[in-house]
Structure formats: structure tokens, C-alpha cells
């Protein structure tokens, strides 16, 4: 076969975008030293912000999985009137600007809002509280889990579920023994994306719950107060933690299941 220039040309174009993404991060990390990072980590304010980011993102992801996986299953298996509308609703948070989402959420979650009011009566406060952080994160990152679950379930043949049923498993048993394990890889990688998206959430969080400060809010605070050098140590810490998390979870997900619907040997 004749060699063409296409592959090298495409590789060169791809390299440009990869460098554009990598260089700033590497350059930023390189500006910090272990000592400067350690010093930042010793500040209670920084530790608290990192902890709120990570834990609120974990809670948001858990809620997204609990509510989104069943929805993903329905979307994968059933045809119903208005399915396209439902899919539109699932994807809506992706197109809503984050500050807009924050304002919309504030409207319903504030003590005078339709959800915030009754929730307040039960002792659940959203504005400037941890639940508010979770709510903002959940709103904007849930689509990742729902869509990942949907495509994961779509890759599982309904015939496998049929066989399971014919062997005596009920609908629930079939879901937990066949459909869910077979899409667990897809769901897990959706959850990782959801978590990463939640940790990086700023626009909605800052409007709904400025406090307790998440890492992104703290970084912005430090940047406006102390400039680049003042905000960088926290930024680098957050990046390193996220990357570590990402790599670990990717490894875990990759070991368990390959591409959706394809069997692998653990």
C-alpha cells in the first residue's frame, strides 16, 4: 500500500491540541515545590476546602448513580412517548451555563423556594451549606452518569436478560445479576467523569454555597486577593489530588470490565 501523509498530518494536528492541554498544567505544577505544597496543605482553610470539594463530589456522584442508573436503564430498554424530551432533559444541564444553573437552583433551594422552604422545616439548609454544594454539583454532573449508564445497558443484549428470566430469575434478580454487572464498567467510568466534573464545579457552587468553601472557590478567592502565586499552591494540590483519583478509578474500572458489553478476563 502506498504511504500517505494523512497519518503523520493527523498526528501532528493532534499533538498541537495535546500540548495545548498539557503544557499549562505541567508548567503550573513545575512552579511549585514539595515544600510550598506542604506549607499550603498545613493551612486548615486549604485542607477544609479540599475536603469539602472531594466529599461533596462523592456525595453528589453517589446520588447521581442511585437516581441516574435506573433512569439510564429505562432509557436503554423502553420506548415511550416523549422519550426524546426526557433525553433532552437529561442533557439540559450540559448546555446551561453554570452561573445560570446556580441562580436557578438558588430560586428553588433558598429558604423561600419551593424545595428550600419545606426542606428548611425539616432542618435541611442549602444556601451556604454543604447540601447546597452537593446540589450544585449534582445538577451539573448527573448527565455523565445517566448517559454512561444508558449506553452501558444498551450494549447488553435484551436476549441475555430473556435467558436469565427463562432460567428462573425475576426482573430484579436479572437486573442485579446480569444487566448491572455487565454495564458496571460503563457506569463506573461515567461515575468517575461525574465526580471529576463535580470537583471542578465553580459557577453554580459559588452562587448557591459560597461557604463552606470548596477548593475552586478558595482558589478564586486567593487569586483575586493574592494573585497568581498566592492561588497556585492550592490549584496544584487540587490538580494532583484529582489526577490521582482519576488514575486510580480508571485503573479499577479498566481491570473490571473493558468497553461496554465486551467480556474481559479479570
Amino acid at each position: 500500500m502506498r504511504r500517505t501523509l494523512m497519518t503523520p498530518a493527523f498526528a501532528a494536528l493532534g499533538a498541537v491540541i495535546l500540548l495545548f492541554v498539557t503544557v499549562p498544567i505541567v508548567a503550573m505544577v513545575a512552579k511549585e515545590t514539595p515544600t510550598s505544597l506542604w506549607q499550603a496543605l498545613r493551612e486548615p482553610e486549604v485542607r477544609s476546602a479540599l475536603w469539602v470539594s472531594i466529599s461533596a463530589a462523592v456525595v453528589a456522584t453517589a446520588i447521581a448513580v442511585a437516581l441516574g442508573v435506573p433512569l439510564g436503564y429505562v432509557m436503554a430498554r423502553r420506548d415511550f412517548a416523549g422519550k426524546a424530551v426526557v433525553q433532552g432533559l437529561v442533557d439540559m444541564p450540559v448546555v446551561v451555563p453554570h452561573t445560570v444553573a446556580g441562580i436557578a437552583l438558588l430560586g428553588v433551594l433558598s429558604p423561600r423556594g419551593v424545595i428550600g422552604g419545606p426542606a428548611g422545616a425539616l432542618g435541611l439548609r442549602f444556601v451556604d451549606a454543604f447540601p447546597g454544594t452537593v446540589a450544585a454539583m449534582l445538577f451539573l454532573s448527573a448527565p455523565f452518569v445517566i448517559n454512561a449508564a444508558r449506553s452501558g445497558f444498551e450494549a447488553v443484549s435484551p436476549r441475555l436478560e430473556n435467558v436469565s428470566r427463562s432460567l428462573g430469575a425475576g426482573a430484579w434478580q436479572t437486573f442485579f445479576r446480569v444487566s448491572l454487572p455487565m454495564s458496571s464498567g460503563a457506569i463506573l467510568s461515567g461515575a468517575v467523569m461525574c465526580w471529576a466534573r463535580a470537583v471542578s464545579e465553580f459557577g453554580a457552587v459559588v452562587i448557591l454555597a459560597y461557604h463552606p468553601q470548596v477548593a475552586c472557590t478558595l482558589i478564586y478567592d486567593r487569586y483575586t486577593g493574592f494573585g497568581l502565586a498566592g492561588s497556585r499552591p492550592v490549584a496544584v494540590l487540587l490538580v494532583l489530588i484529582c489526577l490521582a483519583f482519576f488514575v486510580l478509578l480508571r485503573l479499577a474500572a479498566g481491570r473490571r470490565v473493558g468497553p461496554p458489553g465486551v467480556a474481559t478476563n479479570a
Partner: peptide
Amino acid sequence: LPPEARGVGFVYQDSMLFPH
């Protein structure tokens, strides 16, 4: 009756073994 209550075995052309 649902499939699980019928007591029939089913074999598909492409086997449909549980891959996991």
C-alpha cells in the same frame, strides 16, 4: 405468567452466554 414462572428453557442462535 412472566418467563421465570413458565419453566421453559431457551437456546438462542448466538448462545447468549453470560460473558462475565
